[in-house]
Design a protein around this nucleic acid. Sequence first.
DNA 1: TTAGTGACTGCAT
DNA 2: CATGCAGCCACTA
Length: 114
Amino acid sequence: MSSHTQSFSDRVYWLVCQVPRGAVATYGQIATYAGSPRAARAVGNLMRLSLHNEREVPWHRIINARGAISSKGDTARAELQRRLLEDEGIDFDEAGCCELERLRWQPREVFWDE
DNA sequence: TTAGTGACTGCAT
DNA sequence: CATGCAGCCACTA
């Protein structure tokens, strides 16, 4: 994949689609693989927009660096996200965290050009 | 071009 | 532990 012919958001959406059922990835992970390590927040914005974009991406598999679901007021969405993940077999502890290190998606390729 | 926004993150308190 | 906060950044209007 080339960062010269694709926008950051295109790379983000593509990457999110690579995360398989039953696995999760953090905003920071996606930002890093998309070529902008410090754009985790921007990834969150894109995930939020994807809900109104007609885009079919597994947005629910993207969580924060603590292994929890970021709600920031959108309680309804957060509950839906948790349910979707639980449907894929992912459990959350009392603190609302899943076993990130065990469930974290590990890409097998390098996606960006040097 | 610019300013406002926010599903982030790591460090300090 | 749990907040708080400053730094960061792509997207939008």
